[in-house]
C-alpha cells in the first residue's frame, strides 16, 4: 500500500456521491443565497428549531457531519500509516513521535464511534446514508505531507469547526426537546474538544524549536479555517447559522487572540462570498 493516499481514490460504496467544493462555490445561484436581504441561507439566521426549514436543514447539516466523520477517520488512519516513527523534527523526513501515532489511532476509534453515532442519528432524523452529496475537503487537508500541517489543518481547524457545529446542534436538540440529538451531540462534542487539544498540543511540541514550521502550520490552519467558514455559515455575526463555541474552544487549547483571529477570518470569508455573489449577479439578471 502506498504512503499518501490521494483524495480521488478515497473508497466509498455506491450510495455516496462526491461533489467538488468548487462546484458548490461556483454555483451561479449563490448570488441570491448570499444576498442578506433575501431568504438566503444566512438570511435564514442561526440554525434553531424556530426556522421553518429547521428539521431539513438539521438533517442536511448532520449528514455533512457524518461524511466529515468518515473522512476524519480516514485521515487519522492515514497518519498512522503514512509516517515513520521518529523524532518528528527530521528535516524533510516524514517522521512522527510514537505517541502521536497512538493519539491518531485513538482518534480513529473515536471517529469510528462518531460514524456509528451519526448512522443512528441519520435513522432518527430520517436521512438515508448518502442522501446528500459529499465534499472531500476534510480528507484533502489530511493529505498534507507535513504531519504538523496535517494535524493543524485537521485537528485544529476542521475538528474546531466540529466543536462549533456540535455545540450548535446540541443547543438545537435541547431547544427542540430532542433527547437523542442532544445526547449524541454532547458526547461527540467532548471527543472533539479532545481532538482539537491533541492538535494544539502536538503543534506546540513539534514546532517549539522550529518557528518557521509553526508559522507554516498556522497559515495552513488559517486557509482551512477560512474555507470552512463557508462564506459566513460559521461565524460570530448575528445571522451566522453556526456560531463559534468559544468556551469549548478554550478547553481545547485555543487562546482568546486565536479565537478573535478566527472570528475575523470568518468575517472575511463572508465578505469574499458576497463579492463572488456580486460578480455572478449579471448572470442572474440575464
Amino acid at each position: 500500500m502506498r504512503k499518501s493516499f490521494p483524495v480521488e481514490d478515497l473508497a466509498r460504496d455506491e450510495r455516496f456521491v462526491h461533489v467538488a467544493l468548487a462546484d458548490r462555490i461556483n454555483d451561479p445561484r449563490n448570488a441570491q443565497a448570499a444576498d442578506s436581504g433575501s431568504s438566503g441561507r444566512r438570511g435564514a439566521g442561526r440554525l434553531t428549531p424556530e426556522r421553518p426549514d429547521a428539521p431539513d436543514a438539521a438533517r442536511a447539516l448532520m449528514h455533512g457531519i457524518f461524511v466529515g466523520e468518515i473522512q476524519a477517520l480516514e485521515g487519522a488512519g492515514r497518519t498512522c500509516w503514512d509516517f515513520e516513527v521518529g523524532s518528528g523534527n527530521g528535516e524533510g523526513i516524514p517522521e512522527v513521535p510514537f505517541e502521536l501515532k497512538l493519539d491518531m489511532a485513538r482518534q480513529c476509534w473515536d471517529e469510528a464511534r462518531h460514524c456509528e453515532i451519526s448512522i443512528k442519528l441519520s435513522g432518527h432524523m430520517g436521512t438515508d446514508l448518502g442522501e446528500f452529496s459529499e465534499n472531500t475537503f476534510l480528507y484533502e487537508a489530511a493529505c498534507n505531507p507535513d504531519p504538523v500541517l496535517r494535524l493543524t489543518g485537521v485537528n485544529r481547524a476542521l475538528e474546531g469547526l466540529a466543536i462549533d457545529v456540535f455545540n450548535t446542534m446540541r443547543e438545537f436538540g435541547e431547544i427542540a426537546g430532542d433527547p437523542v440529538l442532544e445526547f449524541c451531540e454532547d458526547w461527540m462534542l467532548a471527543d472533539e474538544v479532545t481532538h482539537v487539544k491533541m492538535g494544539s498540543d502536538w503543534l506546540r511540541k513539534l514546532t517549539a524549536d522550529d518557528k518557521p514550521r509553526q508559522e507554516r502550520a498556522l497559515e495552513f490552519q488559517r486557509v482551512v479555517d477560512k474555507l470552512f467558514s463557508l462564506g459566513g455559515f460559521r461565524g460570530e455575526e448575528d445571522d451566522s447559522p453556526v456560531r463559534l463555541a468559544r468556551r469549548f474552544r478554550e478547553l481545547a487549547g485555543f487562546k482568546d487572540d486565536e479565537m478573535d483571529t478566527l472570528a475575523q477570518i470568518a468575517k472575511e470569508a463572508r465578505e469574499e462570498m458576497e463579492a463572488i455573489a456580486e460578480a455572478n449577479r449579471p448572470a442572474i439578471a440575464h
Partner: peptide
C-alpha cells in the same frame, strides 16, 4: 498502522 491506512481504501462502510 496498516489497519489505519486501509480505512481510506475500503469501500464497505
Amino acid at each position: 498502522e496498516v489497519l489505519g491506512g486501509w480505512v481510506a481504501t475500503v469501500p464497505e462502510l
